[in-house]
Design a protein around this nucleic acid. Structure first.
Lengths: 152, 152
DNA sequence: GTTGATGCAAAGTATTTGCAGAGGG
DNA sequence: CCCTCTGCAAATACTTTGCATCAAC
């Protein structure tokens, strides 16, 4: 993520904090910075492992609470990709869907307007009022396909 | 479901049972019959409530174990529709996706080949080997839309 | 100094499992 | 009879919450 985008997100986060009369704390700053700094889809566990390296005293519950806060301020989205644990992704201004590698758990984001149009058509046909949707394609990414092909 | 389809599914279930050297029991028969008999997407809790009315001694764990059995024999599919509890649907010979009413939890199944084709194209573009996918459209069904419109 | 935040441990959910006794084949 | 199944309760996995203490503002 660019420095500008980082600052913009940080500003939204601080605005949300002050708007709600909440406090900025050392722990929150570490967690939010680490979350923004990575362009990945982290689980709570993974994020906790990372922040612990910066401040080993940060508790599991604080990571949960901070991610909830980020979700509420619209900066993070909770996702369930068929695993037991939820993953959190950075909010983006554009809607996107996901390719999920069943081997290395890499997540690739993609957009496809044609599919979106067809989805709307399906809803119309069923007189269904669409609010949001979820499309997840599960399989093997290029790297993992190759590994499997070589019998690894 | 038609009587023929019911018998066909029952036959697959019995075949799976005997193939694996498993036993047919009173409890399993009640659970499987109740599951096949409803064309819904039930949670374990909901199915348990139904079978309890037939045999109040049937335990929660047995329902879980029987649904696992049905999943293994390919007669049921476990689904997570954004709720905490999983729902189980009848296996069908055709792939389909879902419209999920956020108000009444009704689930409408639909098929759309055009979308499937586009999905494959997305995967090709990312050199991704597709295994399966999940597309869920969340919103309000015709009935619930109308209710909301009238302010109910 | 208030009031919200933290860390811990305990509680909460959904699901799975160990085990002793029951019951199919 | 043997071996699987059942019901119960305990265990598990992830997440949330209560509470005493701590730290922002």
């Amino acid at each position: 993520m660019t420095q500008d985008l980082f600052k913009e997100k940080w500003a939204i986060y601080e605005q949300h904090i002050s708007q709600k009369g909440l406090k900025s704390t050392r722990q929150r700053d570490v967690i939010v910075e680490e979350f923004f700094g990575e362009h990945e889809h982290l689980t709570v566990e993974e994020l906790w492992q990372r922040v612990r390296k910066i401040d080993s005293k940060i508790g599991y519950a604080t990571v949960y609470r901070t991610l909830k806060l980020l979700s509420e301020s619209g900066l993070a989205h909770k996702r369930q990709f068929g695993e037991a644990q939820a993953r959190f992704e950075h909010a983006t201004d554009h809607h996107h869907d996901h390719l999920i590698c069943m081997s290395c758990h890499q997540i690739i984001e993609f957009e496809n307007d044609e599919i979106e149009t067809l989805q709307e058509r399906v809803c119309k046909k069923h007189k269904f009022q669409l609010v949001h949707h979820k499309m997840e394609l599960y399989g093997y990414c290029e790297k993992c396909s190759a590994k499997k092909g070589r019998g690894i």
